[in-house]
Design a protein around this nucleic acid. Structure first.
Lengths: 323, 323
DNA sequence: ATACTATCCTTTACCGTTAAAGTCAAGTTA
DNA sequence: TAACTTGACTTTAACGGTAAAGGATAGTAT
């Protein structure tokens, strides 16, 4: 009995008699044979593996996306190679190289930086590795699918909510220099202007997306005179860091400083002061990303560049003085 | 110039003249050649990939372990195939099969069940795939390394702390039927006995490790008369579920019901009522697991079965009425 | 009876890499 | 000078699968 025959049985090919098929299956069960996916990948040029690169494993936002992706990938027999860039473009580059060498069929990426690895991303797509950028709108010259939210709107929702609570000195802890962080800042400024408030340059502090960034930025903001009475932080971990800084300064949230974050971190509703935030579905985000990738891997691949926008909504809790 | 010569250059073999080496390297740079890790894996029978199977991606406890593992794996050029069993033995089995087919070099596993997949695990180890069980002491017949905590002590620490706070009707929301959950229950009972309190059978409710489990179990406990005045939940998500149930019943934590969890979930200190918990280092756990696996993959593999115990300590916050 | 066809299985070649054995020229030894 | 080393590269075979082409056998058409 030839090896090819066995291969055909396992792949349910037509040209195998059912007597032979049964015999092969019996023998497989008897010997406990298990196919080698590495060898199969080599010939098929398909690894049935997706890579995902996220900037922060400690942030539930990305973990929830990973979970959404994992459930779809695993249901379709795809494996998930998980990489964390720790917001470091160099590590991101290394991880992307690793994924390329391992011939993953597609990459889901929340890029850590605005421009640094554009060349590499272009090389990857030109080699036929589909990329889906999630929650990031950077690297405009890279041809890939995108799943994003409306970040302008995120900034507007958060800021105008604070203004509606009667706050006037509304500060912003800005994210790193990537497009969606900038758009949140744009939305923040737009909301201030709409309310007829002149945005004070010192109200915007470049922070970052990690808790420590928010903590540091808030300490700086608390030094301002007159003190700000509200803060929109670029994301929830930064908002939590900011809350801690407020408490350390002996002040209260929201009475002294109202805070709104973005991203709807896990257990944000259970915090000492439940965190008002702007939310958009991570589950949808992960699932849509998985679908976009999978569509490029099916029998007749979708080639068009697609863009999915997940709408944001305000989730009012106590930290903003609302509710 | 032969393909082998190129291979030798890339592997820094001795028997290559430096003129040739330079010529090859120049050509590689010129052509942008990148080796194919799949093909390399096939010949070397090493994928430089580790699999990790955890029961709950939404639980920061495991995510922190994954993060610890990822940092070490990635630093050594290993990839990480992430799988979630969702506490379902069948899915766990599927994921393990997937990892086997993909020829991962080692598996880190927090098993979802006590006995279900022992046969498969034995097959994996007998095929030379090293396994490290983390935070789990089940499957005693599987020869593998283990990184665990002292779960008896976890239960004792939590329970005796509640008793020290003056509570007498101390209930326990038990985990699933896996060894470490049972040991936490044993520790709970031991602490009660030591304090001269007769453990009431109805005080122990079989729950589970997810937030929903704790919520359901607590609702059941709140039906008891006389009401319990303290609860040790088998882990933090269950404790959080329990807290929610207490609040929904219009009661207060810790005044009416004191609560202690286990595992030190992320942001447990920032909760509306900061959660008292028993903590053991996830970073250590992940790192030690990575080291144990790596030791089996080096040039002279460690073959002995090893066991690392991470000591637990009590972290007192407000939910227990302490602090 | 001969040629054609369909069915079912086998042979061959290849995926991209590495280990082991082989070649060959130049240098060394006796 | 003939035989042996040594260094530097090449050839061959293998890893475990799959695609494509190549038989063999039986059934059908002419």
């Amino acid at each position: 009995m030839s090896i090819t025959t066995v291969s055909k049985v396992l792949n349910n090919r037509e040209d195998i008699g059912h007597a032979t098929r049964a015999r092969v299956l019996a023998k497989i069960a008897e010997l406990g044979y298990q196919p080698n996916a590495v060898a199969r990948s080599l010939t098929l040029r398909r690894t049935h593996t997706l890579g995902i690169v996220i900037p922060d494993l400690m942030h539930s936002f990305f973990v929830e996306i990973v979970a959404g992706l994992e459930s779809i990938a695993s249901a379709r027999g795809y494996g998930l190679l998980l990489c964390s860039s720790n917001e470091d473009p160099r590590k991101e580059r290394d991880e992307l190289e690793l994924l390329r060498q391992r011939q993953v069929d597609g990459i889901v990426l929340a890029s850590a930086n605005a421009a640094g690895n554009t060349d590499l991303l272009q090389r990857l797509t030109s080699q036929g590795i589909g990329i889906v950028m999630i929650d990031r709108d950077d690297h405009p010259d890279v041809s890939c699918d995108r799943v994003v939210t409306d970040d302008d709107e995120v900034g507007r929702l958060a800021t105008s909510h604070l203004i509606e609570q009667g706050r006037r000195a509304v500060a912003h802890i800005a994210g790193p220099s990537i497009v969606h962080a900038k758009r949140r800042a744009d939305g923040y400024r737009a909301a201030l202007r709409t309310a007829g408030i002149k945005p004070h340059p010192e109200w915007v502090v470049r922070g970052g997306f990690m808790e420590a960034d928010g903590h540091k930025a808030m300490k700086k903001l608390l030094g301002l005179k007159p003190r700000v009475d509200a803060v929109f932080a670029a994301n929830d971990p930064a908002a939590i860091g900011a809350m801690k800084a407020v408490w350390e300064a002996g002040l209260r949230v929201p009475e002294d400083v109202a805070i709104v974050g973005a991203g709807d971190i896990a257990h944000g509703d259970l915090l000492r002061v439940p965190l008002t935030t702007v939310s958009w579905s991570r589950e949808d985000l992960g699932r849509r990303a998985a679908e976009l990738i999978m569509d490029r891997l099916g029998p007749e691949p979708v080639e068009t560049e697609r863009r999915v926008v997940i709408p944001p909504r305000l989730v009012v809790r106590r930290s903003s003085g609302g509710a």
